[in-house]
Write a protein that binds this DNA or RNA. Structure first.
Length: 126
DNA sequence: ATTCTTACA
DNA sequence: TGTAAGAA
């Protein structure tokens, strides 16, 4: 990857900074980590260190939550993205297959607000 | 002064 | 999710 991404991946931000950058409480930030939505690094005395990517992800999480997507839904979204990324690595240079197209379209639909609320369970628009 | 963990009259 | 308590 490019150095630009390496910089975004550098974990150097302490909790206090991330709190201000995301408008989230320490409680919430730690909870999302416990749910596996983010994986900050640790340093010196067991203090969490976040990268700019972590901050971006927290902002996304905050927005999804604001739109009524629950933790499970957000996890599903990231799982989808991981799967999509993995698929691309496997497909490396080959042209887009119809499978790729369908996956991309599904990711897009999910991004625009498809998953349900905590009580209604995961919605299935298909 | 900050952050961490754990727990809940 | 908030907040308190004790440690680091």
């Amino acid at each position: 990857m490019k150095e630009k991404e390496l910089r975004r991946s550098l974990a150097v931000l302490p909790m206090g900074t991330v709190m201000k950058l995301t408008s989230l409480t320490a409680r919430q930030i730690r909870y999302y980590e416990a749910q596996g939505l983010i994986t900050p690094e640790r340093s010196d005395g067991n203090r969490r260190l976040y990268s700019l990517n972590d901050v971006d992800r927290l902002l996304e999480i905050r927005d999804y939550l604001a739109d009524g997507v629950n933790i499970a839904g957000i996890k599903a979204i990231y799982d989808q993205q991981n799967a999509a990324t993995m698929a691309k690595q496997s497909a490396q240079q080959q042209p887009l297959t119809d499978e790729d197209v369908r996956r991309i379209l599904q990711d897009e639909f999910i991004r625009q607000g498809g998953l349900g609320h905590p009580n209604s369970g995961i919605q299935r628009p298909f």
